[in-house]
Simulated assay, not measured.
Amino acid sequence: MALLLAEYCADNGQPWVLPVVKKVQQQIVHDPTLSHEYLSVRGLPEFNRATTALILGADSIAIVEKRADSIQVPGGCGSLCMGARFLKKWYTITHPKAVAIYISSPSWETHMTVFQEAGFMDIFKYRYWDNENLCVAIHKWLEDLQNAPEYSIVVLHIAAHWPTAMDPTPAEWKQIAEVMKRKKQFPFFYVTAQGLASGDLNKDAWPVRHFVTERFELFCAQSFGKNFGLYNDRVGSLTVVSRDNYTLIRIRSQMELAARQTWSNPPRYGARIVATILNNPAFFAEWRENLKRMAERLMLLKEKLKEELRTLGTLRSWEHITRQIGLFIYPGFTDFQIDYLMKKKHIYLSSIAQINISLINSQNLTYIAQCINEAVLSNPEDMKL
């Protein structure tokens, strides 16, 4: 039984297609005016406008002052890659010393390699996770930012940090912004599932919007795979917030050149679905309800798993999994327990034991909880109580 797939799955174990996405797909298929012509280098204009407003808020001061815009890219990784290459070529010119990159520990391995491939040499990790208390290590994180050089680029996850599934509180984000402003550091946000983390689009976007109100220049890489269920359509966006409109125009022209040299122009189909939903009030309202339904089910599954483990008397508290948000949970298994679950019980996890909670359903919940209980009991001294 594999619990490491990336898609949101329904109770039958199959990836769920959002009802509003089905409606829009049918509308596109039967629209006689649509063709397969190339998009511009920057992508679908209505997609770029809508995704900028989605993450920043339609009334954002950065939009009002015309110093924010987005460029369509192939997925979240494409967005991160575009941003990294731009920063290596242009950000480092204005800061003669070697610019340091700071990535959370733990984090996606891809994030490290993206910045390495872009040409950055000084790549460091800031402490994100407290493995003893199974929570965000905010004091260590702030200490690492304070000790980081001025003008460092800091990669910040929002809407469910990967892999820990736990984000800072608003008060903690304010502390992070305060240190980064003092150190003149550049925030590079990475957003994989706005709206799916908490069920509230605005709540999930709050950290980015707070940094904008604090007058940061920033990048924000967005992926629309999980929150629209468009996993294989590679729909992404890189949002730029600059100091003024003149700077934005220059950044945009260089990104257009980079896109031309890299993928020429992005794919249309997925972006058209996203743009249609975001720009149609009825579709947008339905999409928000779809997201809320998904997020509430994920929260309920975490509660059910916690209760099942409590009923079995499993030797530890499982409160942390119900504080985690989004599609995954980070249970804090030891290497022994991961090995036990995979080899003895054939429950296949990632190397860090991250679990796609949507794959736990009414048919397998009891069995999975029993297997976890056995893994803990098999070597209880190896488990942090």
Rank of each mutant, 00 (worst) to 15 (best):
A353L: 14
T366L: 11
L359I: 04
S350M: 11
S378P: 10
M383L: 14
N373K: 04
L359T: 03
Y367D: 10
S351Y: 09
L365I: 06
M383V: 11
S358C: 02
Q354C: 12
N379T: 10
S358Q: 04
I368K: 01
A375W: 06
P380H: 10
S351Q: 12
I355T: 06
L359V: 02
Q370C: 10
L359Q: 13
I372P: 15
M383F: 11
I357H: 01
Y367Q: 05
I372S: 00
P380E: 11
S351N: 12
D382M: 12
S351W: 12
I355L: 01
E374I: 00
I352D: 11
Q363V: 15
P380F: 15
Q363W: 07
Q363P: 08
M383P: 07
M383S: 10
I368H: 00
I352M: 08
Q354I: 06
N373R: 09
Q370G: 09
S350N: 09
L359C: 12
I357T: 03
L349P: 02
Q354T: 10
T366V: 12
C371S: 13
N356H: 03
A369S: 09
L359R: 11
D382E: 15
S350Y: 15
Q370K: 14
E381H: 07
N364M: 15
A375P: 07
I372R: 00
L377Y: 02
K384W: 11
I360G: 01
L365W: 06
I360F: 14
K384D: 14
A369F: 05
A369Q: 10
V376E: 01
I360H: 04
E381K: 06
M383R: 05
I372C: 06
S362H: 11
V376H: 14
I368M: 03
C371R: 09
S351R: 12
Y367R: 09
D382S: 13
S378L: 06
Q370R: 06
L377I: 00
A375D: 01
L377D: 01
L377S: 00
S350T: 14
L349D: 02
Q370S: 09
A369K: 05
